[in-house]
Design a protein around this nucleic acid. Structure first.
Lengths: 137, 137
DNA sequence: GTCTTATTGCTAATGATTCTCAATTGCAGT
DNA sequence: ACTGCAATTGAGAATCATTAGCAATAAGAC
């Protein structure tokens, strides 16, 4: 029925992207691209965008939309399903948190209003200790 | 100290924007602009952007960043401080909800990680009953 | 009414992301 | 290892939302 998505292939560049995704920080596709180039890779920007997108679909990376509208990516913790983040608005450093209470709450609210196919996003942002110290002087 | 922001003036176009913001739906700046034009207004797109932005700063309108990256605006309920939404991913229709438990939770998590100047966003999206019905046939 | 300056409306400029398409290259089968 | 072919890549053009630049207007104070 479904047009059946093409079979993914493991290419050099896809491997490189995966390898680059090591830190715990959220970065934009452009930032990851720069990092790759600076490390000698020759991947194209478009490829990085495509790669990150498909990885996000497979659940390999987390994607969040910053207030500026740009999408930030980061490799996900192991295979855990669902979680949220406390992210630094300045350096991007993020901590994974989970809000078990909320999962239930979301569904209650949703069914109260008769909304279906619920999805939720919780974004907690702040200034991390390091950046705070830096900006205070 | 602060460069003291200019004194805002009530212009025809600002009034029109305020007037247009009547429905309970989230719409993009472009969408609000179209609506205004279709109702005979001659406001420019940039003016709508500027107007919505300043209104958002004053807390007169809510602004949320959709997954697509575009910013959606809607007039706020009276002057209540802080709240969240359950928004339909198809038609944009939204319900204001509040999550008192969460406000406290957010601060606890934040201080646990020593993050300052906390800000949070909770976005609940789903498909509203009307759109669900529509897409089911 | 006059003046000062915030505001408007174009339009051009940005910035991020996506698309186009020819050139590559996994990889299944032989 | 060799072929065939669809998936993938890379570079640049194309989109899209949003912002900046600037001359022309028009609030609001006097």
């Amino acid at each position: 029925m479904t047009p059946s998505a093409p079979v993914p292939r493991m290419t050099r560049q896809r491997r490189e992207i995966l390898d680059a995704l090591d830190t715990r920080d959220f970065r934009s596709a452009q930032a990851w691209h720069e990092r790759l180039r600076s490390e000698g890779s020759t991947v194209g920007l478009a490829t990085v965008y495509r790669g990150l997108q498909s990885l996000a679909e497979q659940g390999e990376v987390d994607a969040v939309v910053a207030e500026s509208g740009e999408t930030l990516y980061r490799r996900c913790e192991a295979g855990d399903e669902h979680h949220h983040h406390l992210r630094c608005r300045i350096c991007g450093r993020a901590v994974e948190i989970d809000v078990p209470e909320f999962e239930a709450f979301a569904h209650r609210i949703a069914s109260e209003h008769d909304y279906g196919d619920i999805r939720h996003t919780i974004e907690l942002t702040g200034i991390c200790p390091q950046c705070r110290a830096a900006s205070e002087r």
